[in-house]
């Protein structure tokens, strides 16, 4: 599962909270899976349903929390997630990104992101956009008004009703990874000779790093 796009048009699901942690995005009981897919029905499980979920369950039988933003009719299909400060903090579980994508989110906008989550997004093609508090506040209004926004990754700009709302920053390599759907491991392996040479030097400088168990 990998997104690969340069332009996205969508409505916004507003999640008005700071410090949304990855334990909330996908609770631990679902991390037992050895796959990357199938997490969508359990995204925000504890907030979304009124009971405790477990892996492999038929979620259509469960009672939903009608107040939670993902369950409100007016935000159904709104595939841009909007949140506040320090989104994705806590556990390094990449399952958080897989569940957001499996649910259908294409972009996550927040005032700030935790480092590991932010990295994990790019590895899968989920676009994280960091914006100022002022713009975030505007976007919460736009979300309520159910307006569409256009996210132009190529030109790094967000447009609403024909007007430029803001520009956003993104690391050029990461941008390319999403635009081109690049195989990062393949790219790194192009430097195999450099890695091998480094390794030889390091094994001379610090041979103990390369030792196996050393009882002697």
């Amino acid at each position: 599962m990998k997104n690969n796009y340069n332009f996205h048009i969508g409505r916004i699901t507003p999640l008005s909270r700071d410090n949304v942690d990855t334990d909330q995005i996908i609770p631990k009981q679902f991390l037992k899976s050895i796959k990357k897919s199938g997490f969508g029905p359990n995204l925000f499980d504890a907030w979304r349903y009124e009971d405790e979920g477990y892996p492999g369950q038929d979620v259509s039988e469960r009672s939903i929390n009608k107040d939670f933003i993902l369950n409100q009719e007016k935000f159904l299909g709104a595939d841009v997630l909007l949140s506040k400060d320090n989104f994705g903090c806590g556990s390094s579980r990449e399952h958080a990104v897989w569940s957001l994508m499996d649910y259908g989110f294409k972009v996550v906008i927040a005032q700030s992101f935790a480092d590991i989550f932010y990295n994990n997004c790019f590895k899968n093609g989920l676009l994280p956009i960091q914006l100022s508090k002022e713009i975030i506040t505007k976007l919460f209004d736009i979300a309520e008004q159910k307006k569409e926004i256009e996210i132009d990754l190529l030109n790094q700009v967000i447009v609403c009703e024909g007007n430029e709302l803001c520009r956003f920053e993104i690391d050029p390599f990461r941008k390319e990874c999403i635009l081109e759907g690049l195989d990062e491991i393949g790219l790194s392996l192009k430097f195999s000779e450099d890695i091998k040479n480094f390794e030889i030097k390091r094994s001379l400088d610090a041979p103990w790093v390369f030792n196996e168990r050393n009882e002697g």
Binding site: S91, E94, N119, N120, K123, N124, I185, S188, I195
Partner: peptide, 30 residues
Amino acid sequence: DSHTSTHGALATLAMGIGTSEVEHVLATQC
């Protein structure tokens, strides 16, 4: 695992990574 930071107590550079990075480190040692 995000709590890899623990090992920094021994003057190491220790960081938690995601699963894609686990695969990357396995494949490239980088």
